[in-house]
Write a protein that binds this DNA or RNA. Structure first.
Lengths: 233, 233
DNA sequence: CGGGTTCTTGAACCAGCTCAATATGAGTGG
DNA sequence: CCACTCATATTGAGCTGGTTCAAGAACCCG
């Protein structure tokens, strides 16, 4: 829409084309992908992609920025269920066709969408989309292991290790994690209280394993950090 | 294989046909499904379906019995990551094409397999398979919320509620949960110690919310149980 | 430079973990 | 069918670490 490359060639000029659903597709397949994809919807920081109760018929692919998903139960308690980086497909769990989760941009972000109505694209394209969703499910599986770690330190170390790995896969510096989310969000994601997380972060800064301010975490001793998250093997 | 209905009509005579990937498919589509499916591999109790490190190229669909998946880290610590009922697709997470998890039958069980090499089946069939996998991912999502519950009681209540819902979907009595897995397995699945779980179970038996022996859990007060797992909304 | 949110730090409490002993039950063999 | 055995489950006591409640500090925003 508006002034941008033609739909057919959008992906070819996208800076995340090697890390998203388009990765590994041939030029012909990219054109095929374009049949089912809408490109580059922009989101401002703190803008919702969708809310619990919305009917979500499309898959969202993160193009830039970072998003978080969260769940609110009947008591009004909020639980952060995931953070999504470029290339990730935002998992969409529903009941009765309506989303259970809220998804919000943490930073200025952009997303592309695919819709699964009609089989307009080739098998290869569907496989690529499925493969992306599988990768996110894999991340969720690892997070399940992190949530079972007993100590707050192990959980936070697991968070750092996993974010580091995900950044590495994106070709970014794996030892520099930008954290547009709040400490409260990270704590919720890890099933900890804000205070417990804060103490752990302080201790790990003290011991020189990490450096951290509000918006970033720097990994100073990667091996030590990995050793602190033994549950991830 | 051996003496059983012909491949094409296996599903039509299967007792889980309404709760598995075959649910909602037309007779023609069932024949289509048969092209990519192998039927009814049997497993004895405690027999592995596959182990960590195995190359798993097929999707396993539980036909009868119950299976568990577990992960072993480098410290040799075991973590139970899921239980699978008839109709479930066993999630297969891998690294370098090799499974990260072990999957073992808890009871005498049987599984069917689909392989995704070649697009021999119709789009509808692939959608059905994808939908099944999505359902299991949904269960895993709910479990994530359960793992964040602070108290042992809330976690165990969450386990019961979720198992109850899954059984209900299978058309079984939602208030009668058979538990072929050990207490240790359940505790591991919930991120608790065996002792903590045992105490919670005793307390809930005492208060008349559930009845339980080694192999079964009976839900006596469903509303109370639900109230004990507020994190699932 | 305020004003308010976010984060850090402290102290006390309590739930779950650990270690330990006992009890129950399933499986086996006489 | 019963007795024995071993794995599994229960119960108890004390301890550790995370939560809770509370106060103060740092930071971003306008």
């Amino acid at each position: 829409m508006r002034c941008r490359p033609s739909q057919e060639h959008f992906c070819r000029h996208c800076h995340t084309r090697n890390h998203c659903v388009a990765a590994g597709l041939t030029p012909d397949e990219l054109i095929d992908l374009a049949k089912v994809m809408n490109f580059g919807q922009r989101l401002a920081a703190n803008e919702h992609l969708y809310a619990a109760g919305d009917v979500v018929n499309t898959q969202y692919h993160v193009r830039s920025g970072m998003l978080k998903s969260y769940f609110i139960n009947r008591q009004g308690e909020e639980s952060v269920t995931g953070f999504y980086l470029p290339g990730d497909v935002v998992p969409n769990f529903g009941a009765g066709g309506r989303s259970l989760q809220n998804v919000i941009a943490l930073d200025a972000s952009s997303v592309c969408t695919t819709s699964n109505n009609g089989a307009q694209a080739s098998e290869k394209v569907w496989q690529a989309i499925g493969s992306r969703a599988h990768g996110v499910a894999h991340d969720a599986f690892m997070h399940q292991l992190t949530l079972k770690a007993h100590s707050a330190q192990a959980r936070f170390a697991g968070f750092c290790v996993q974010m580091s790995q995900r950044l590495g896969r994106l070709g970014r510096d794996p030892n520099y994690i930008s954290t547009p989310m709040s400490r409260t969000d990270i704590a919720s994601y890890l099933g900890l209280t804000l205070e417990s997380l804060s103490r752990v972060v302080s201790r790990m800064k003290q011991s020189g394993v990490i450096a951290a301010d509000r918006a970033h975490i720097g990994i100073l001793k990667p091996e030590t950090l990995t050793a602190l998250a033994p549950h991830l093997s």
